[in-house]
């Protein structure tokens, strides 16, 4: 007689996702030094930019920057970019790096034998890091206000709404990226380079108009560029590349495209690894 296979319900899947998030949160809190440092890290990146801005500023402030961005408040411009890019890192790290950590610890194969859909594993692994990113971002904004005079003048709620399709598009990227980690068995360099290059090309630190002609098309092909630009336009009243309504439309298209594409790539790679029996290798 065959045993009854467990019935997957929405509730059981939600429990599984929360269990994964809880496991990651426990693991994170186990290293308190690392936890405390999550808030300090963005400030360490922002401080050199602050002083660099001062070295270019004249008596009248940052006129050079204002000519590009439509605001001379370069620190608020950069802090908004830093907060948004910490979310994009959370998704990439959450999926790609967590996969590698499980590979190294030798727990990936056994976890994947449980009756939980694998994509759900990946989503679960980003939940703790997204919650944590929200907390640390609040810390960064508070420190940014205190140290660098960060302030927003626009509609925060509307800006938060614009980040939703951006986040879904990032999940698409994350799935494709996790597939790549499964194939290459290496995550550090991939995560490092992509989580550095994506915000760089999308203008997390500067208006993309300064990019050379060779890189500008790449930047304009990335959804993040429009996400950063629209959010800044709404929060800081900066000059946007195209009207904000168009940028939101572009984000929605990217969201659908990347969601499907990323998921398909991941499933195909996963099937290939199952066939070759390489899931546990590292």
């Amino acid at each position: 007689m065959r045993g009854n296979s467990p019935q997957r319900t929405l509730r059981s899947q939600l429990r599984a996702v929360l269990a994964i998030a809880k496991k990651d949160a426990l693991h994170f809190l186990r290293y308190p030094l690392s936890a405390a440092f999550q808030v300090l890290q963005p400030i360490i990146w922002l401080t050199p930019v602050y002083f660099m801005g001062r070295s270019f500023a004249g008596a009248g402030g940052s006129g050079g920057f204002a000519a590009y961005a439509g605001t001379g408040d370069y620190m608020s411009f950069i802090i908004v970019g830093a907060v948004l890019s910490s979310y994009d890192s959370a998704v990439l790290w959450g999926m790609g790096y967590a996969l590698k950590t499980e590979m190294d610890a030798g727990t990936l194969e056994s976890n994947w034998l449980t009756p939980v859909p694998r994509p759900l594993f990946l989503v679960g692994q980003t939940l703790a890091s997204l919650a944590l990113t929200t907390l640390t971002s609040a810390g960064v904004v508070a420190l940014g206000w205190l140290l660098f005079g960060f302030r927003v003048t626009g509609d925060v709620f509307l800006a938060a709404l614009v980040t939703l399709p951006l986040l879904v598009a990032l999940y698409g990227f994350g799935f494709a990226f996790a597939g790549l980690v499964l194939l290459l068995k290496e995550a550090n360099t991939l995560v490092d380079v992509s989580s550095f290059a994506l915000p760089l090309l999308s203008g997390a630190q500067f208006p993309v108009q300064v990019l050379p002609p060779l890189l500008l098309p790449l930047s304009l092909a990335l959804p993040l560029t429009y996400g950063y630009d629209a959010v800044r336009g709404l929060l800081l009243g900066t000059k946007t590349l195209v009207p904000i309504a168009y940028e939101v439309g572009i984000l929605l298209v990217f969201m659908g495209l990347m969601g499907v594409l990323g998921y398909t790539v991941f499933k195909r790679v996963e099937r290939r690894c199952q066939r070759l029996g390489t899931i546990g290798m590292h």
Binding site: P48, V49, M52, G53, S55, F56, A57, G58, S62, G63, G64, F65, A67, Y68, A69, Y74, I78, V193, F196, A197, L200, Q205, F206, P207, V210, L211
Partner: peptide, 25 residues
């Protein structure tokens, strides 16, 4: 090559379209 680009492009933006603020630096 990749790492300094973030700072280089930020410096370019701080310098302004015509490089007017580079004199301060």
């Amino acid at each position: 090559v990749l790492f300094p680009l973030g700072y280089i492009f930020t410096a370019k933006a701080l310098g302004g379209p015509e490089g007017g603020a580079v004199g301060n630096f």
